[in-house]
Design a binder for these strands. Sequence first.
DNA 1: ACATATCGACCGACCAGTCGGTCAAAATTA
DNA 2: TAATTTTGACCGACTGGTCGGTCGATATGT
Lengths: 199, 199
Amino acid sequence: MFDTKNNKNKRIKILEAALYLFSRKGYHRTRMREIAEHAGVGKGTIYEYFESKEDLFTSLIVHLFKALDEYAFQKVKPNMSASMKIKALVTGYLELVENMPREAIMVMTEFWSEGIRNHLKFDFRDMYKKYLRITRKILEEGIKKEEFKETVNVENLSRSLLAFMDGILFHAMLFREEIDLERITEDFLDTVLKGISRR
Amino acid sequence: MFDTKNNKNKRIKILEAALYLFSRKGYHRTRMREIAEHAGVGKGTIYEYFESKEDLFTSLIVHLFKALDEYAFQKVKPNMSASMKIKALVTGYLELVENMPREAIMVMTEFWSEGIRNHLKFDFRDMYKKYLRITRKILEEGIKKEEFKETVNVENLSRSLLAFMDGILFHAMLFREEIDLERITEDFLDTVLKGISRR
DNA sequence: ACATATCGACCGACCAGTCGGTCAAAATTA
DNA sequence: TAATTTTGACCGACTGGTCGGTCGATATGT
């Protein structure tokens, strides 16, 4: 049927317009009318696909997170060493983030700031938990394989890595030109991995 | 004169009310009427002290940043080793942040998200530059004193440390109960310092 | 002809900022 | 000291405009 595809196209178009505008003007400053115009649909049509402005916002976030989810994890291959896996996961995440239109990051930042206050129904802690789980598993595996010291605190370090990823992402946004994201991350991972590797 | 003190009190009262409400409901959801009520003044009075809602918001941020500025840096004493200085700086920052009402962090997060989009006049990149400068200096000193390897990339690592600080702060907000900020930071710094120390 | 999708004019709730008036206290005068 | 004038901090009702969401009309597809 054409219908489904047509619907999907229109839904995507609206999401794209929302991304474009939310990222530039922020959620609260963006008008539904603008989104409609930018998407080339009537304002009422948006409400055929999304219940409300907030629903549109969270749908957009889910949409973006999905891409992130799919991309970064597939970079980690089973035959890699634990160190390689860590590198792959972190750089995969940052790569994605660099390739992703900067717009997406902006929207996510706002989503953080809204989400933290529990103003939104969607709970994105789950996303983090998944990352945490995977990182923990890699670290544990590295310890078991005697690649990392057994004194490594898996829980704490995985949180630190995650924290670094978010932080450096934020800094990249703030200092766009001045920062070489890749080099910084490489340097950082080398340092950390040196710190936890067995001699 | 009594006038000045009275004025100051009222100004502070308004700022406190703004902190209370902005942190809970976010900038856009907070009404000037609410702030006035909470501060125990008339709505019009707010406009005697602040030009606009945005002016009130940025004034609040400046107010908060000042405390941060003064606290964290004084933790670094000249006679410490470079490693100790790094630890002092980072934990000082986090201590401050933990003692600071969580409200303040919330507001700052929103400020980030607004500031990134250049919606506000106040540019808080300067804050970061100061942190960067200090961290760089400590690292350079550590290298010169042969405490750290000379292969350490000062520029990159200082950015990484800063990134970690922001990231972990954000995570602490997200996962309040579940996280032991201090332990994680300690662990992390040990790992990194081990990674850059000469044998 | 019927069903479904689309549209945008319209509505009413909402809100930042204004402005003319009030009044207590400071300054001036007697 | 007491009476009188001046000041400006304070207030909140009001305004002009905004915007999310609705719904009946219209278009499109079957």
